[in-house]
Design a protein around this nucleic acid. Sequence first.
RNA 1: GGCCCCGUGGUCAAGCGGUCAAGACACCGCCCUUUCACGGCGGUAACAGGGGUUCGAGUCCCCUCGGGGUCACCA
Length: 485
Amino acid sequence: MLPVRTRFAPSPTGFLHMGSLRTALYCYLFTRKNKGTFILRIEDTDQERLVPGATEVIYDTLRECGLNWDEGPDVGGPVAPYVQSERKDSYLPYAKQLIESGHAYYCFCTREELAARREAAQARGETWKYDKHCLGLSREQVAGNLEKGLPWVVRQNTPTTGESDFDDLVYGHISAPNDTLDDMVLLKADGMPTYNFANVVDDHLMGITHVIRGMEYLSSTPKYNLLYKALGWDIPLYIHLPNVMRDAKHKLSKRDGDAYYSDFIKKGFLTPALMNYLALVGWNPGDEREFFTLSELVEAFSVQGLSKSPAIFDVNKLTWFNAEYIRRLSPGEYLRLAQPWFEQALSGTGMDYPRLAELMQPRTEIFSQIPDMVRFLKEMPGYDLALYENKKQKSGMESVPGALALAKNLLETVEDWSEEAIHAALIPGIAAAGLKNGTVLWPLRVALSGQLSTPGGAIEIAYLLGRRETTRRLDAALKRVGGAN
RNA sequence: GGCCCCGUGGUCAAGCGGUCAAGACACCGCCCUUUCACGGCGGUAACAGGGGUUCGAGUCCCCUCGGGGUCACCA
């Protein structure tokens, strides 16, 4: 088999979408697995949809994800340029060749004319397909129109009989009747090729052996193959990928927001977790493994593991992956990543971040959840007295005032405010009073946090808060529950 | 609507004619525990429906239904 050459060919119209990212991932995995060449090609033939800076976003995102390309606009390569707009002049000769051989023709129909005929056809209940109106033009008429400077496009002349078929590496045998194939535009009036034409010409010129792309191209692939044949070129192998869905009925789309790689990063998802999850949406290694680094994915990847049916993007599972990746971070790394989020809620408190980080690491699923989880450390929230009630801990309104008062007395004996010292003061003291740990510790934690759940128990919270703030909150609570003070 | 593709638990997904239909996420329960989380153990839950083929079908064929894609001078 020929050395594998593949390309990821996004159009620079905005941020990189999770669906596109997954396509890039699979393309990369397939290529590396087969020791091939991975090419990045920018498809910017639609000048109207171009977004400034989008190309750089593509570079940055791909690099961040470790999907490095061997040839591309910025790194060059033997079949440069890798930006379609810079290849503009290379398409016309092939279009002319197709016109000469009768596989394509000039079309002078205006958008308005087309719209009118389309509507009329639909009004008659017919399925619209370009009516080959301009195919009937004589050589002289065409020449005359060209002479007059009339705007023109080039259309593919698809056969009206027979059928076209091909074998897709994941979907298997695909065939379609030729008479359902539309005469698609190959060259636009502005001289730019359409995707339909550019991808065929460029894939051939760049020596692409395997075309890996979303399945939205599955039904137009027969038309592309007709072009390859008309030009006398070898048809590449195809690997069409099932869609990534938002839910059962909707494809994950750019309009959903939150579907961009950058959105997930902003929310505090880790890139390796994202990649790991993405790899498993539409592919599986064939065994029980589910944690993979990029290179492990390369090793495990095979087209046999690719699925045919669309898969719903499950943020739930992604979140689980992310939490797993967070737990596996070294304490130092976790602290570095969590610090900005701590700051967001706790700036100015002088909190012991390293200790807080230890407490938070097993509880963090997504970094953006951190501020809400720790905010109580800076500002005591209002709370319901019912929080003090806990049967299992033997805590109730009758025991709380005494418990809190005991805690206060014990805490006053602490000399240096460390967790060890606090522990050493409270635990034996509670035992000496003949109480259950929970009877004192439960209300203490409530008094210090005003919350049902906290990162850490009463001792950790007291330590984090510091002596002064702990005392202040404890006094306030005693006052509120009517305890002695 | 025409054409193309897809259809195993709520989600991802193994299964590629022959044990009681794996596993993961989510959910529920129990244990651990000064809360929550982590961790450990256990549980609920699926072959869209109907016909065939076969000794035997989630696995092969047909139909129906459901879903998606595509019918642009967008990619």
